[in-house]
Simulated scan of single mutants.
Amino acid sequence: MRLRQRTENMQEIEKKIRNEQDFLILGHISPDGDTIGSGMALLLALQGLGKSAIFAVDGKLPEKMAFLSDYAKVYSFAEVPKRQYGCVIAVDVSDRERMGKCQALFDASPNTIVIDHHGTNPGFGGSNHIETVGATGLLIYRLLQQLQVPLTKQVADLLYLAICTDTGNFSYSNTEAEILHMAAELREAGADIPLIIENIYKARSLGATRLIGRSLEHLILAEEGKIALSYILQEDFRELGALVEDTEELINYTREIKSVEIAIFLRQSEEEQFKISFRSKNYADVAALASEFEGGGHVHASGGKIQAPLQVAIARLLEAAAKKL
């Protein structure tokens, strides 16, 4: 996105926000740190401007982010008031289906905004700011600067959560200089980095720990070790006492194998239905790969889904991934 286009889009969004009083902010299903941190930071900023605002996701706050419940309420779809809102803002949502049941609330509003960093986003809002930066949290940070919202300690925490999780704690190739400058500014504003890192990266339940072992037991290597695939079945959660959210980082264990260029992780959601995560290290475009499986995302990190028996799903994925090498 060109700088001029970027500026014009954000100025239009700033104007809409200043002129509206009633907001609903929506994150994506299976919420991660970027959608939660960005959405909650925007929520607190809007409330600080004296506006009415609610943040909701089709799901619930992940257990490792439960410490954020003291900052503000995150509504589930069941809890959120079902009415028409003056303005609905989708944050870190790559397409309208990613809002889950909350999509109906978005579609019911005459005034919609999309702020997102996924390159595959078609721009489904009335106003859209789509820019392929390291995290949506960076876009929200810029917006709050334009709105001249004071950077409180809580907002700093939330934005730090957003950018650190989507950059792999500042280790992925999407960690641009602007994000590192932003992290320093958030720290100066009081961001509690030890609190965030301890909860997100250093604390793990026994069930989650056992799940790591199970995913590695299911490891499959192909194409001379350039492709690694693993999976978790519904029975694994029951047997090990783990939660669905405990699978979020499992793909990294296969990606970290030295020979691997493309890592694939499958999580069984229903009988013969699987959610897919894709990661690549250097040259493979897994956003293009995900588009073949009803998904999308970034060049080096994306997701999709497949409906098929496990072994059929594995065979299809390995065949498609081999063509991206």
Rank of each mutant, 00 (worst) to 15 (best):
D166K: 01
E223V: 12
D246R: 14
R210K: 14
A177M: 04
H181M: 13
G213I: 15
F170C: 02
L219K: 02
E235T: 15
G241E: 05
F265S: 00
K275I: 01
I220W: 06
I276C: 01
V286Q: 05
E235Q: 15
S215A: 15
L240H: 06
A287M: 10
A184M: 13
N169E: 07
S280F: 00
Y160I: 12
R255L: 14
G213A: 14
L221M: 14
L229T: 07
F278L: 07
Q273L: 03
I220G: 04
I200P: 04
E271I: 04
L250Q: 11
L243W: 14
A184G: 15
L219N: 04
A288T: 10
A263G: 08
Y253C: 08
D236T: 09
L233I: 12
K258E: 14
I200A: 00
L180C: 09
Q273D: 06
Y231G: 00
D236C: 09
E223Y: 11
E261I: 05
L221D: 08
P194A: 12
L229G: 14
L221C: 07
I197R: 01
E178I: 09
G213D: 12
A203C: 15
L221W: 03
L266Q: 06
Y253T: 06
E239L: 12
I163A: 12
I227Q: 10
E249W: 06
Y283D: 04
I251P: 05
E272P: 09
E185Q: 13
S173Y: 00
R210T: 01
T175D: 01
G190P: 15
S171V: 11
R238F: 14
K202T: 03
I257S: 15
E224Q: 13
M182W: 09
G225E: 04
I200V: 03
E188K: 11
R279D: 03
L229R: 08
I262C: 07
Q268S: 07
F278M: 11
S280Y: 00
L250C: 05
R214L: 08
G225Y: 02
T175E: 05
N252G: 11
G190Y: 15
N199R: 13
A228V: 04
I220M: 05
